[in-house]
Design a binder for these strands. Structure first.
Length: 734
DNA sequence: GGCGGGTGTCATCTC
DNA sequence: TTGAGATGACACCCG
């Protein structure tokens, strides 16, 4: 479990974070096999059934029933909540964007390309997983589906016509209208549910074998669907089987063709790709990814993770690069097409523009190319898995100037503000020095902390927050203050509490090191006794407990004989009690210890005491005082340790926050650098000399003047100035 | 029997 | 100077 947790922490969580950073919302939970713990468990901690995590609040109530923190029912509770959310989400249309397009494409082709329909439909269904709409265990996905639905509908009109030449524009519009009506009329999700459809199809087959109906395609595709879809036996969730490359048809092949149902799909991936090389590349890259993870000690469930990551990442990347109508196996609404062009246009699109262009030319393999030697920058920041290599091109790990090519060597040197350069250098320095995996994990904690979940794992179940501690302390302060006089005034009824508190003078808050923290508050009043029951330090028991009829410790009950009881009582007495009794001291030890000096002297004056007696009384008083002082001292020590621990956690949290801000600054600065560089290239490329020839970037460079104008200067001069600036910066650092 | 935690006690220091 | 508190060190007990 730990290794699995580590794997997700360092791998998929970062992967998810990265996806979220670029605006893609992913529910990785659905990628996991049923026997793997849900990510929620990884984020929130281990199942309460296996940990001692203290859910000391009222959150763990399921429909009014209190769930014990350690109850295994908590898992059911979470499952029930998830299922409840699914049920509640049923009234919303939940078809991933890819499914919508696939379904329509199939229906479009129904009229004319009957032979290809089953395969097409199945392949699409297989790929995008219509059942996803029926397994809405993630609001994320449904939201995404809802958001992207309208766009997809619009896209469909553009996708379908060129694909199927038999359909007229009116056909498409009609289909579109019917489609919308289905949705408006609240078409049940069972329409899109594979299993339901399958049953329905069997009935349809019997009832109307040749009837042309809206679901006919499904029945025809049923047998292939059996082959194409794997159904999780536990969850019932269907997920796409990985077609061999030769088994997957492309839309362009299948739809226009008149080949029969036997036509094997060829991938549905991209017309730009051959059906054979792409899955191989993706698989190969996944193997690379896995090998990297394995070399870093991660336990990887290659079966589950490979399948899921292969599905999502591969399909999405393809989708992103080739801007296809989504027909690739995508199990969720992760659309890198949107990610790279939509939500991340501000951030990553500009950053990766050059990279994306090159990648799209080079093919999809480069996108998944992991860069294990990326040891700086974001890769280091986000841990050691190098997953960031997928999203952070090498330019991010090095300098942006590397992208400028040989023709524009470091054009930014003179363009960037000195302060910015300082900042960048500081950032780089901090990135190199500060971003070790530990801090990266802190960073993750900080990300987690947004949900209020971070650092709780470091708290032991008994660890109380300061507020809890203070409240507990206030609620049981009397017990605690009296505990300070254990052994002498444990019989609180006979002790002046004010005196006792005055003697103690310290109200330590509860700590996790104090056993009381684990006790039920109702038991606190018995703690002084329980404490001694636990440790059976009988030699320092309070004398009052010996003289009164108070309930004796459990061990006492077994010794019913009077002699044994007498022996026990004898042992219960402290040494000072024994001495006092032997010396016939006329007043109890607790008075000797707890009385103020004046009253104590007054008490002594009332009796005619020998020197030995007086000496013993003073020793008893000294030892008693010292005993309480020692107890208080120890409690103070514990509190000091706890406070230090809290301070460390706070500082770590602050540090994580600062590191995260640093990453954001770094990213924005690099974006600015990229923009400036692009602008530089554009301006420089437009410059012409007297002969109308462009200037050579090796000989000339642009430079900002102090008045804001841009001048063209010889490269040598620009280099000189650049070196001068570097020197200035170094001097400033010194 | 060893070990760790809790506790009592002593010596010492500080206020 | 004395008393009280604080604290390190040690020993003892218990689980």
């Amino acid at each position: 479990m730990l290794s699995l947790k580590k794997y997700f922490t360092e791998g998929l969580i970062q992967f998810t974070i990265l996806l979220s950073l670029i605006g893609v919302r992913v529910d990785v939970d659905t990628y996991l096999n049923s026997h793997l713990p849900p990510l929620r468990e990884i984020f929130l901690g281990q199942s309460s059934a296996y940990t001692q995590t203290q859910f000391h609040n009222l959150r763990n109530t399921l429909d009014g029933y209190v769930i014990h923190p350690k109850s295994v029912d908590l898992d059911y509770y979470f499952t029930a909540r998830r299922l409840l959310n699914q049920v509640r989400a049923l009234d919303r249309f939940q078809v991933p964007t890819t499914e919508v397009s696939a379904w329509l494409v199939h229906r479009d082709s129904e009229g004319s390309v009957s032979g290809a329909q089953p395969n097409t439909g199945i392949a699409l269904e297989n790929g995008s997983g219509l059942q996803d709409g029926t397994v809405p265990d993630n609001e994320v996905r449904e939201n995404g589906a809802e958001q992207g639905f309208g766009e997809e509908l619009e896209d469909l009109g553009a996708v379908a016509p060129p694909v199927n030449g038999d359909l007229t524009k009116e056909d498409i519009d009609l289909i579109d209208i019917l489609w919308r009506q289905d949705i408006d009329l609240g078409a049940g999700r069972e329409i899109f549910d594979y299993s339901h459809r399958q049953k329905e199809n069997e009935v349809d087959k019997e009832a109307n074998n040749g009837e042309e109906c809206g679901d006919g395609w499904r029945s025809r595709g049923g047998d292939v669907a059996d082959r194409a879809l794997l159904v999780d036996g536990e969850t019932g969730e269907s997920f796409p089987a990985q077609f061999p490359a030769a088994d997957a048809p492309s839309l362009t092949e299948v739809l226009p063709s008149e080949s029969g149902p036997s036509t094997v799909p060829d991938g549905l991936l991209s017309p730009l790709l051959t059906g054979t090389e792409l899955p191989f590349d993706l698989e190969q890259q996944w193997q690379d990814l896995m090998s990297i993870m394995e070399t870093q000690g991660m336990e990887v469930n290659s079966t589950a993770a490979a399948g899921t990551l292969y599905d999502s990442t591969g399909g999405d990347i393809l989708n992103a690069n080739y801007s296809l109508a989504p027909s690739t196996p995508i199990n969720q609404n992760v659309s890198l097409h949107q990610a790279s062009l939509g939500s991340c246009t501000q951030d990553f699109a500009s950053l990766f523009s050059s990279e994306m262009e090159s990648l799209s030319v080079a093919g999809s393999s480069a996108l998944l190319q992991l860069v294990p030697d990326n040891s700086t920058g974001f890769n280091t920041t986000f841990g050691s898995t190098n997953l960031s290599g997928i999203f952070f091109p090498p330019q991010l790990n090095g300098t942006v100037n590397e992208t400028s090519g040989p023709e524009l060597p470091d054009p930014l040197g003179g363009l960037l503000d000195e302060a910015m350069l300082d900042e960048i250098s500081l950032m780089d320095l901090a990135t190199e020095e500060g971003f070790n995996p530990v801090q990266a994990s802190r960073l993750e904690e900080e990300f987690d902390s947004d949900s209020g979940l971070s650092l709780d794992s470091s708290h032991s179940p008994a660890s109380l927050s300061s507020s809890e501690a203070s409240s507990s302390s206030s609620s049981a302060s009397s017990s605690f203050s009296e505990e300070g006089a254990v052994g002498y005034n444990s019989d609180s009824e006979n002790v002046d509490v004010e005196d006792a508190e005055g003697a103690v003078g310290y109200q330590p808050e509860y700590s996790k090191f104090c056993r009381m923290s684990y006790q039920n508050p109702s038991q606190l009043q018995y703690l002084p006794y329980l404490e001694h029951v636990g440790h059976n330090h009988t030699y320092n028991m309070a004398p009052r407990t010996l003289d009164t009829d108070e309930p004796q410790p459990a061990t006492m009950g077994k010794k019913s004989a009077k002699d044994k009881q007498a022996d026990f009582l004898d042992k219960q007495m402290s040494r000072d009690e024994h001495r006092a009794r032997a010396m016939k001291i006329p007043f109890p030890n607790e008075k000797i210890i707890n009385l103020p000096v004046e009253e104590f002297n007054e008490l002594l004056s009332k009796y005619q005491l020998s020197e030995a007696q007086l000496s013993l009384i003073r020793d008893i008083r000294r030892r008693g005082k010292n005993k309480m002082a020692a107890q208080n001292c120890r409690k103070r020590k514990l509190d000091t340790i706890l406070n230090l621990e809290r301070d460390v956690e706070d500082l770590q949290r602050d540090k994580s926050k600062l590191l995260r801000e640093k990453v954001e600054f770094l990213r924005s600065i690099r974006q600015m650098k990229q923009k400036v560089q692009n602008l530089y290239q554009e301006v420089f490329g437009r410059l012409r000399d007297e002969n109308g020839q462009p200037y050579s970037p090796n000989q000339y460079a642009l430079q900002y003047a102090s008045n804001g104008s841009v001048i063209l200067i010889p490269r040598s001069l620009a280099d000189q100035q650049g070196r001068r600036q570097e020197r200035k910066q170094k001097d400033r650092r010194k």
